[in-house]
Design a protein around this nucleic acid. Structure first.
Lengths: 241, 241
DNA sequence: TAGTGGTCTAGACCACTAG
DNA sequence: TAGTGGTCTAGACCACTAG
């Protein structure tokens, strides 16, 4: 099986960078030089260089050349799914409460809404084999005409709830992750002792225009949630197929 | 300022997907159709479609066409840096111990080494304004001839330590994040009470060939560590420039 | 068999860089 | 001014898909 020309070139350049023959800051041979050296057209060379750039190894400086990038070491790909995290996947959920309430100060702040804008509160327990593993609270600014059918709420993901009319492609989502000790109501609901460690994940949803459309917190019993993240060069956020 | 042809096309297609005119699973017009419709060459059309694919909106099925992707909602970009996380950045660190020891069962397991392979243990405190905010332990398989100068250890990042001779471009890194309560030695070192909540981040480093070259755990006092992750379409792992 | 995306080429023109 | 990367074109040939 003959390797494609642009793959051959990108493989060779990538290897040179991985081996340290080309170091961060170093300039790569120019498009024309590579074109001559490998006897392939400039268009094909550009395809290889564009791939290398996509993979994070290089960047181009128009008028100057291509350079090896300083490796970014503090960005990881994190896997997170409300219902399915290592250590225990929630097979089901139990709806505790659905309500429309006037906003608290905290809700007004988090959702960026005025005090006369009502808020939908959804409280759930996530269960694995019948036992609670997490307590989940979500807040959405109330829109008139928004249907609140329990069945829908139970099976919808957060983005689906908050962005009912919005395409998932135009939603942004922020997570904050921290550790806390269980106390008060949460202890009762999760059936753990006061002070039991929890992993707390706050989620905030935005439209493409940065309007907040949802905010929520999930309190995982520490034993039932382990988040995983990974870093490696050339990684992609989206698989093919 | 006239927009470039391929930017115009990618903007229009992206908007159609974001607005839901084109839904997940839908087929896009073929390269030839787009080429005709927008009166631009097929090469330029392909450039636009390749960008759209890079951004995660579409994928191509050779022989069939381009399709709108089912949005991936469980992958986030996580920012993590040992020395600098929201809620308190460690301005300095204090080296507690550097040792070469025979491996414990746990170390053998985590580092995937035999029992006659020695292990370097590095223990540090991360400090902010003089006060401890995290306790950090790292384990590296011992290689003869590896210099262990304190100064180097103090200022090196984990990948730099573990991959001394290895280019950062050929290293992989996994994180595990969980919550725990402080107990024993950690309480004393971090000056917190028994049961105080901690955010624990385990790091494992691999070569490109999946050989483990380092393992470590950082115990952050919960108040001093808040991790952030975000999700949005079209995001990139690497900035330009 | 008609149509689709994938690879590759040669060539033109542009703005920008840096000596 | 010579060289660099960026945009864009027209055209050729290929393997694959699906009726």
């Amino acid at each position: 099986m003959k390797e494609l020309l642009y793959i051959q070139l990108v493989d060779q350049l990538r290897k040179k960078i991985q081996l340290g023959v080309l170091k961060p800051g170093d300039m790569l041979p120019s498009e024309n030089e590579l074109s001559q050296e490998y006897q392939i057209s400039r268009v094909t060379v550009r395809k290889s260089l564009s791939l290398l750039e996509q993979e994070g190894y290089t960047y181009s400086a128009p008028g100057k050349g291509y350079f090896v990038r300083e490796p970014v070491t503090d960005k990881y790909i994190l896997n997170f799914n409300e219902m399915n995290n290592a250590g225990g996947s929630a097979a089901s959920s139990k709806l505790l409460e659905v309500n429309v309430v006037p906003p608290s100060t905290k809700m007004m702040y988090e959702l960026q809404i005025p005090d006369d804008r009502y808020v939908i509160v959804i409280k759930r327990l996530l269960l694995a084999e019948g036992a609670p593993i997490a307590y989940d609270v979500k807040y959405l600014p109330y829109n008139r005409g928004l249907p609140l059918v329990e069945r829908e709420i139970k099976y919808a993901t957060f983005p689906e709830l908050a962005g009912k009319k919005t395409s998932l492609f135009s939603i942004k989502k922020d997570l904050k992750i921290c550790a806390k000790n269980a106390s008060g109501e949460v202890c009762t609901l999760l059936n753990v002792e006061e002070g039991h460690p929890l992993l707390v994940i706050s989620q905030k949803l935005y439209t493409a225009e940065n309007k907040v459309i949802g905010w929520g917190e999930i309190y995982y019993i520490a034993e039932f949630c382990e988040l995983n993240a990974m870093w490696s060069f050339g990684q992609r956020l989206y698989d093919n197929g």
